[in-house]
Design a protein around this nucleic acid. Structure first.
Length: 203
DNA sequence: CTTCAGATGCTCT
DNA sequence: GAGCATCTGAAGA
């Protein structure tokens, strides 16, 4: 598991550094793991796209003011969940949205969570777009508002830098330096000039 | 491959 | 009451 201090840093740096790391999700005796492939940074201090813009503190944004590494999970469009990991020192509302991952452990369980079928039964289209969106990440890994506010270090959700930590090997870990792409964030047109900030990262 | 409508409920005004 | 850090399936090119 990466140390909590990993999240106690500049949010954009954390967003970049989370690429290639692993989300490990545990529940009901199951262990799921997925490689992080797409992230976005949100910084309340100066970012209109952030729910806690200008330090706005409400019942919803409360987890963003919690210690680094805390999970911030909210419901969007009435039916999808989005997972964020809180960054910066406690009291600085900021987080990284997990927008995409690749499944590495628990394929059948994740496929069941997403499509109510075995991994083998997925269509080519379902396979191609398996976990390439924030709502899909949460659906596949069974993440919902029950995890909102979860302190970092809890076994239910961890971030690891190597799958060896859960007894697996991943060829992608030996693939050399990551080729990191940068772009504008998705779905934040309402944020005015801040919508153009290059705070989306993917590999 | 693209566009498009519809689903659905929480949050803040 | 408006709007939202989205996804899906259907239809057309």
């Amino acid at each position: 598991m990466v140390p909590q201090s990993f999240f106690d840093r500049d949010t954009v740096a954390v967003a970049r550094d989370l690429l290639g790391k692993y989300l490990v999700r545990r529940y009901d005796g199951l262990v799921l793991a997925a490689r992080i492939t797409e992230t976005e940074a949100y910084i309340g201090r100066m970012d209109r796209a952030c729910h806690a813009y200008n330090y706005r503190r409400t019942a919803r944004t409360e987890p963003l003011f919690a210690p680094p590494g805390t999970a911030y999970v909210y419901l969007i469009y009435g039916m999808h969940h989005c997972l964020n990991l809180v960054t910066e020192r406690e009291g600085e509302p900021a987080a990284v949205l997990i927008r995409g991952v690749q499944a590495r452990r628990g394929l059948d369980i994740i496929a069941e969570n997403r499509f109510r079928c075995k991994a083998e039964g997925m269509t080519p289209c379902q396979r191609k777009h398996f976990l390439d969106g924030p709502g899909k990440v949460c659906a596949g890994l069974n993440i919902d508002r029950r995890l909102n506010g979860l302190p970092y270090g809890a076994p239910e959700l961890e971030v690891c830098s190597s799958l060896a930590e859960i007894g697996l090997s991943d060829p992608a870990e030996d693939g050399g330096p990551l080729r990191i792409h940068t772009g504008v964030r998705i779905g934040v047109d309402y944020a005015g000039e801040d919508a153009g900030l290059p705070w989306r990262f993917w590999i």
